[in-house]
């Protein structure tokens, strides 16, 4: 599973992307966030307040209960501020 980070989520985690293999019980976006938060102090800081973070699965905005599977591209970022 490819995980991407943008904006301050990327800054806090310390990397822009990584390849991860979460345990089988990680089945949705919320579960993946909780698991990623255990990977390093930077990850923990980035995912400390899940309400501040938005997600996309395979380049589509995703809710916390959206399923994630091996092979997916999952991105985490703050609410968007374009335009």
């Amino acid at each position: 599973m490819r995980v991407l980070y943008f904006a301050w989520v990327r800054q806090k985690v310390g990397i822009a992307e990584e390849e991860v293999s979460p345990p089988a019980e990680v089945g949705d976006v919320a579960g993946l966030m909780a698991w990623l938060g255990t990977r390093s102090p930077g990850h923990a800081a980035a995912f400390a307040d899940a309400r501040q973070i938005r997600a996309a699965v395979n380049q589509e905005f995703a809710s916390p209960d959206q399923p994630v599977r091996p092979g997916d591209e999952v991105a985490f970022f703050p609410p968007v501020t374009g335009g």
Binding site: F6, F61, V80, T81, G82, G83
Partner: peptide, 14 residues
């Protein structure tokens, strides 16, 4: 279009 770009296009401003 500009209203939706602000909320649905994945850009972040620093």
């Amino acid at each position: 279009l500009i209203d939706w770009l602000k909320t649905r296009a994945p850009f972040w401003k620093r």
